[in-house]
Amino acid sequence: MIVVLARGTESGEAEAVLERLRADGLEGRLVRAGSRSLIHVLRGPSRRARRLSSDARVVAIVPTSGPRVRREGRRFYPYHALRMGAGGLVLLGLLVGLAGFFPPLAGSEPGALAAPSRALWPWYLAPLRGLYELLPADPAWLAPGAALFLFGLVLVLPVLDRTRGQDGRARAPVLAAGLLLLGAFAALGALALGGSS
């Protein structure tokens, strides 16, 4: 934020404005721009500088958002901290809504072990279940081996992808392979979930 002082403001008066800022917990530096004096507010809660707008020596208060802010980003506090707080509240609301409208089952009576069916598998294991269904049961290592191979492929992605920069053409094969893998996971999941209905 820049505090613009009136033309012809003496250095003593400019120092007085600076002192007033300091009293409000702000740190700034005096800058001479031709015949005009400016105060660049460096640190502190800049909204307090707005109190100076009633001061006769102050002509304007200019926020320093702009190219620099766009390039370097906004400060974590208060900008992102407030967004995160609001996001957290929305998330909590969503959770309460889901828990209220779709509460978990209270649980059935414990009994004899039911025969394992495809319906009992949770949704997040559906791609793994689909892989087990797609591949032949013999040899027994085939399905777990394929699952381990796919997991390893995702894990060592930084080693496999040697491209640099954001050049879309150079990254196209990697992106295509990744999206293909994701599509395969989704198809396997759909296969498992579709078979269980």
């Binding site: 059935s108 009576e109 009994g111 394992p116 009992l120 949770p122 399905a143 777990p144 081996g145």
Partner: peptide, 24 residues
């Protein structure tokens, strides 16, 4: 999922263990 230990979760545990056993 297993902690509720009802019919579903015990069946799920059995199925998961059977799948684990197939790992070479």
């Amino acid at each position: 999922e297993l902690l509720a230990w009802d019919a579903r979760s015990s069946a799920l545990a059995a199925a998961a263990l059977s799948g684990t056993e197939s790992i070479p």
